[in-house]
Design a binder for these strands. Sequence first.
DNA 1: AGTTTTCCCTGCCCGC
DNA 2: TGCGGGCAGGGAAAAC
Length: 280
Amino acid sequence: MPELPEVETVRRGLTQLVAGSQIKKVDVIYEKMINLPKKPFEDALREKTIEAVDRRGKYLFIRISGGLTIVSHLRMEGKYDVEPEGAPIGKHTHVIFHLADGRQLRYNDTRKFGRMNLVHTGDEMSVAGLRNIGPEPTERDLTVDYMQTIFAKSKKMIKPFLLDQSKIAGLGNIYADEVLWLSKIHPEQPVNLLTLDEIKRLRMNIITEIQKAIAGHGTTVHSYSNAYGEAGSFQNHLNVYGRTNKPCLRCGTPIVKIKLAQRGTHFCPQCQVIHGEENE
DNA sequence: AGTTTTCCCTGCCCGC
DNA sequence: TGCGGGCAGGGAAAAC
């Protein structure tokens, strides 16, 4: 499932493969994927050029000549593939961009969860999830001050809190479990009771983990692959996600899996313990 | 207003 | 073998 590092990997892949390419025409096969009716969406993109591909959180911004942007969210299993025009079209192909050089950029998505919003460049906030999206998980944007402020204001459990894109952009279920394990914080810990030390530790783990995952071209779980069709390599580095009943890599205690806010959540009951403000 | 639940989808895995 | 049921999950919308 693409989280920020996977989306960044796709962004780089698309930049290399299709930036500068002209779109001859577009075929929308699955209409619910897009924010406009099929015809105006296709017509607006005919004969335009893909100028660049940017990213914000897990959203891709495909910049189109004439002041347009396709805001693309891959959700669970969305992916872009570049194929020659004769290649057989799979049953999960929902949008096809016919490029002037004969190649096709195809959007594939087995679960049909992904979405494409065609907007005027600059109007990206008209897409619901971008209106109040949180800072990028970087040294520069995710400051200790900011984290302290938002953590003090909420009694929510840290795991669902980390998945809330309006708090911090880009973390998904895998990285949320990973950074909590690395930081030795229990997923049900209320965020307002975290110590400053824990907040700082969590912050650094978020920043460095995302960085490392980008360097490793993203995690691969299920069917994810990048625009080159390569699988990411970061799955080899997962410490806790998907390791239910396997020994914790720090202390050997079996990893426990619970459900929090409808999300599978993995943690070590020995290393990650809930505490009140009186503790540590 | 903040938080929790439901729903969208399909493939896969399990049990019968 | 085939079928039903349950599960997986990001995020928007609906319900609390």
